[in-house]
Simulated assay, not measured.
Amino acid sequence: MKLGVFTVLFSHLELDDMLDYVSSKGIEAVELGTGGFPGDAHCKIDELLENPGALSVFKEKIDSRGLTISALSCHGNPLHPQKQIAEPNDALLDKTIKLASLLDVPVVNTFSGCPGDHEGALYPNWPVSPWPHDFQEVLKWQWEEKLIPYWKEKNDLAQSYGVKIGLELHGGFSVHTPNNMLKLREACGEAIGANLDPSHMWWQGIDPVESIKILGRENAIHHFHAKDTIIDQPNMNRNGLTDMTDYSQMKDRAWYFRTVGFGHDSKTWADMISTLRLMDYDYVVSIEHEDGLMSIDEGFSKAVDTLKPLMVKESIKEMWWA
């Protein structure tokens, strides 16, 4: 397994400076944003697709530092009911899949998207209650008319380029649990899988270790994020898990993100790493830092220090004791 980082947190640095810094920390892989919510500070997709020379120089910068690219990420909402939002995200996903193939990057990460509730909608509709039954009708329409047709097409496109799609299970989007991840995968194809982020499991009340088992048994984990979450139980009692309090108002939120080790202890993270290996995931654990209590450097450094000793680097080939 390799320890990596989602480099969006270093968007203030030029590519060379970012690569030098993360490699000095012992990072082995970088996850690069190509646009959408992560931005494109370190990966200008149009330039790289249109200029073979620029693509070659870009690859050399990564290779010369002993790094690999774990994934290209273009998180957005390609199913947004407003075309001026959906269409650029859709086009970006297609281009990111193509660039990933050219760079021999096996995974493209994004969100599943969330449609509206009818063709004339202006905003996404995220049903989270089975009753009143209107929500069931909305959910059925979204999946049958939007999600499945769209992702079946993207599954086939990704397969044609030899690339997998890692959907981040994230609240506010149609795919946010292991169950609806597997539902979409079954309907659309095996190029569709999870970019599994335990932070979003915790706040939904899902045990990340169990989510690894559920998805891992189906070979549906394509990529893994390392980000922690803390539950503030008094605020949870008041606001519930679908808390709409702004992220900046941490004192009042039911839950908020922490750097690795500051929401859950090392044993919990060791259990996740071990379960990933148990489920035959032998790829990258990519640090994502969104901790409102720590600077980028401190939060990132603490995450590295926590995870480094836990990474399984030498899996056995046979059980010599049995």
Rank of each mutant, 00 (worst) to 15 (best):
D232G: 00
Q142N: 06
M1K: 09
I97M: 04
F135W: 15
S73D: 05
Q204Y: 01
W269Q: 05
K152E: 06
W202L: 13
I230K: 08
A322D: 14
Q249H: 15
N237E: 15
K61M: 08
S73W: 04
W269K: 08
S266P: 00
H12D: 09
I85H: 12
S174C: 15
A54I: 07
W321K: 15
N239Q: 06
E290A: 13
D117L: 00
D16R: 07
M201Q: 13
A220T: 08
D243K: 02
E60M: 04
E290H: 05
M236F: 14
C74E: 06
K154G: 03
A121E: 01
K140Q: 13
K152Q: 10
Y281W: 08
D305Y: 07
P309V: 10
L307G: 07
R65I: 09
V8P: 00
T68K: 12
I214T: 14
N125M: 13
F58M: 01
G205E: 05
N51K: 06
W321P: 00
P127D: 12
V138N: 03
F257K: 11
E50A: 10
I287Y: 12
L196F: 03
F10T: 03
T242G: 00
S286W: 09
W143H: 00
S64F: 03
I316H: 10
S129R: 09
T68C: 01
S73Y: 12
E210Q: 10
V138E: 11
C188I: 07
G263C: 01
E137L: 14
L169Q: 03
S211P: 00
K25E: 10
F300H: 02
A100H: 06
L276V: 12
W141K: 14
N235S: 02
Y150M: 11
A158W: 10
I287R: 11
S56L: 10
N89F: 05
S274C: 06
M18T: 02
N219W: 01
E144G: 00
D63Y: 05
K213S: 12
E210F: 04
G39M: 01
L310M: 10
V108K: 05
H289N: 11
K267N: 04
N155C: 13
I214R: 14
S24N: 09
Y150R: 10
E137H: 14
P132W: 08
I27D: 07
H12C: 01
K317W: 12
I296D: 12
E288L: 13
D90V: 01
I273T: 09
F300R: 03
Y283R: 07
A100T: 01
M181S: 10
N109H: 06
K146H: 10
S315W: 08
D94Y: 10
F58N: 05
A194S: 14
L184H: 02
D265W: 11
H225Y: 11
V107F: 07
P115R: 13
I316N: 02
D94G: 06
E60Q: 13
A54W: 02
K95H: 06
V107A: 00
I231K: 05
A91D: 10
H289K: 03
V22M: 08
T268H: 13
V284E: 12
G120S: 07
